[in-house]
Design a protein around this nucleic acid. Structure first.
Lengths: 214, 214
DNA sequence: AATAATCAATCAAACGTTTGTTTAACTTTA
DNA sequence: TAAAGTTAAACAAACGTTTGATTGATTATT
């Protein structure tokens, strides 16, 4: 049974957005509830009033934003007009797009994955990764059955490269800008630029991993 | 001119090690100076006494540990018994080894790269990345001149995949363990295992990026 | 229709802790 | 005995959270 999505009021959503922004910039411990209240233009007490605690607010951020991170593969599996490799390419585009569009949330994800102790958010991340992993697995196995992909593929390692490359690009995009002398390029254009670069790069990598024999 | 390495006493090194461990586990803001003092078995005041501030202690951690992260390519360039691709493979092994061996420090690096504001540590990371980038660039250009590598290679993007894949593996190694049903494997053996896996995987990727035409 | 009661929303202020850092007294070392 | 090392205690500031009063709109009672 699918978990029923909590409904947030506009005011709650404003707090969640402010929290996401600041958590992405300075991390959970580096952001105070007063910072969040100021960013959202509300009184500090409202955070406890609506969410119970700072920790619970972080969970609300995940509840509200994590859906944008989920890979959807059902329609792809049924589609008979695309080859297995084309399907993987669609999936890569989808993933890169979501990652670029939701950078603030993904910065939080990257940080939270580094935390050692098991809290509620860690569990959410684990389940999200597991679900994405399973989606990919289905797609790959389909391609393997038809003979389009080779047999021995380490899917988890492959996903590590996908997620890792995109994460690292998000993390060091300013560095990427400078190394390629793109300081003058307007931000929206640059975002399109790295999206295109990443997409082509990853498609090329995946084609090799999936089809060429080592 | 090379910056003269600061000499730390044994006691200072103990504090630095304790700080590295806790910063890696819980982040800079998630670790208190009292935590560090307790871990190192010293009085809180000693941190201010020796390092001036918590911030400066973090810089000392970098000063002491960052050298292990630097890619060394000089000997490799002069070696005439290895092909360009073999040299790249040596470099990948070298990088993966350093990363696995210095996981605590690299966790700190991954976290600090996410911080938006420019502090002293951010500058250190930038220079480290720049230096590593330049080292790789030399090696690639050498291979390109001899015709072993293709012409249009996005070296920054390539490094993004190298660093990103290894970082993501460090970050989610517990996940990797469970997905491959390796919960029973002893920790040291598992570390060797992922080092080997990562190395083979990345060598395969780089061979493709560097030699095959898109 | 007028009045009383109830409610969630909002606020400034205060709560008790914990934070990084400093002080001043004491001990060890050279 | 002067300098360096070490300590418990204290410091102000910042932290997450709670409190109690006030608001304004809605519901119930007369």
């Amino acid at each position: 049974m699918e978990k029923t999505a909590t409904e947030f009021t506009d005011k709650q959503l404003a707090i969640i957005d402010a929290a996401q922004k600041l958590f992405a910039e300075s991390g959970f411990d580096g952001t105070s509830v007063r910072d969040i209240a100021h960013e959202a233009g509300i009184n500090v007490a409202m955070i406890s009033y609506y969410f119970g605690s700072k920790e619970k607010l972080m969970e609300a951020v995940f509840e509200q934003k994590a859906n944008h991170t989920r890979i959807k593969v059902e329609n792809l599996l049924q589609n008979e007009n695309l080859s297995p490799l084309e399907k993987v390419n669609v999936l890569i585009d989808d993933y890169v797009d979501k990652f670029i569009a939701q950078q603030e949330f993904h910065r939080i994800m990257i940080r939270e994955q580094l935390i050692e102790k098991n809290n509620a958010v860690a569990t959410l991340i684990y389940e999200l990764k597991k679900r994405n992993q399973d989606s990919i697995k289905k797609l790959i196995h389909e391609g393997q059955k038809g003979g389009a992909f080779k047999k021995n593929i380490d899917i988890v390692l492959m996903m590590t490269t996908l997620v890792g490359t995109v994460s690292q690009m998000i993390t060091s995009q300013r560095f990427y800008r400078e190394m390629n002398h793109l300081e003058e390029m307007p931000e929206p254009e640059f975002q399109k630029y790295i999206r295109k670069k990443l997409s082509a790069h990853l498609k090329n990598l995946f084609k090799v991993i999936l089809t060429y024999e080592a």
